[in-house]
């Protein structure tokens, strides 16, 4: 029992790392554009499908498909931002929300239309990793390591490059950033692209161990929302910690109360946080 519990706990940390990755994308978009991208889960779904089709049709290893997924979804996201979101950037938040919700519907149902509702999976044989008598799921471990590496790269990008500094400046104060000569419009576009790109990368990692179907994004967008609420809107560290906590909670609740109640447990946690600590554990309350 104890061994099983330990295995589940490790699994929770591993998937939590991947959750942290896509939540960071959502959070970055919120920080710089001050909008909630409801279609974020659909970019995860697209990442999963691209990895699946590349693997099935050309035999490309999912990890190598990252080199295609990130740029593709980066440009798709950036283009969408420039064409649509940029036009409503100063509008009431409900307009932006409904707009991204429209994108969610569009992407989800296009996937349904082109690829049908079939459940698909990438079947790869990974060697089993054992630590003493503990068995660790290899695809989840790969996803975790990949997520950590991506997050570290993102961190360096944001702190060590000119563009990263610009993005952080807009996140901090868009008006002041504009005054010192930063191209705020460009930063918004790049940030949205990075956010959707990160969602796609997370999708590739998830596709290593999870089924792929058109509405799969809904699960992850709901998880991302809970993590953002838990960690605090606009908090980098909060997304990391929140991801690990929710990953852990999901694994443990599947073990103790049964997997079919996973969503209900998540919902209860969500309500409790909103009731007692609406700014999140690490949140400063955000600017809204």
């Amino acid at each position: 029992m104890l061994q099983h519990l330990l295995e589940v706990a490790i699994e929770g940390i591993l998937i939590g790392g991947i959750y942290a990755l896509f939540t960071l994308g959502l959070n970055m978009i919120y920080g710089v554009l001050e909008i909630i991208n409801f279609a974020h889960g659909e970019f995860i779904m697209l990442g999963m499908y691209i990895a699946f089709w590349l693997f099935t049709l050309t035999g490309l290893h999912p990890l190598l498909s990252l080199a295609i997924v990130f740029p593709l979804l980066f440009f798709a996201g950036a283009a969408f931002e420039r064409v649509t979101i940029e036009k409503v950037i100063k509008a009431h938040i409900f307009i932006q929300t409904v707009l991204t919700f429209g994108l969610l519907l569009l992407l989800q149902n296009l996937a349904y239309f082109f690829w049908s509702a079939d459940y698909r999976a990438i079947r790869l044989n990974f060697p089993l990793i054992s630590l003493g008598s503990l068995h660790i799921s290899t695809p989840r471990l790969i996803g975790f390591i990949g997520s950590v590496v991506t997050i570290i790269i993102l961190h360096f990008f944001l702190t060590r490059t000119k563009m990263g500094t610009g993005i952080r400046a807009v996140d901090e104060n868009p008006i002041a950033a504009e005054l010192v000569g930063i191209n705020v419009k460009k930063m918004r576009m790049v940030t949205f692209g990075i956010g959707t790109g990160l969602a796609g990368v997370a999708g590739v990692f998830i596709s290593l161990y999870y089924y792929i179907y058109p509405t799969v994004g809904s699960i992850f967008i709901l998880l991302a929302f809970i993590i953002v609420v838990l960690g605090g809107m606009g908090s980098f560290v909060g997304s990391l910690a929140g991801g690990l906590i929710i990953g852990e909670l999901e694994s443990l609740s599947a073990l103790f109360v049964g997997p079919q109640w996973k969503e209900v447990v998540a919902m209860v946690v969500f309500i409790l946080i909103l009731l007692f600590k609406p700014t999140g554990i690490f949140g400063t309350g955000g600017r809204k």
């Binding site: 969610l104 569009l106 239309f113």
Partner: peptide
């Protein structure tokens, strides 16, 4: 009818940007 939700998605995007 099968593409209902695709149409709804496009409608929402278009209405929010150009015809509020």
């Amino acid at each position: 009818g099968a593409y209902r939700f695709i149409i709804y998605g496009v409608l929402l995007i278009v209405v929010m940007i150009w015809a509020r």
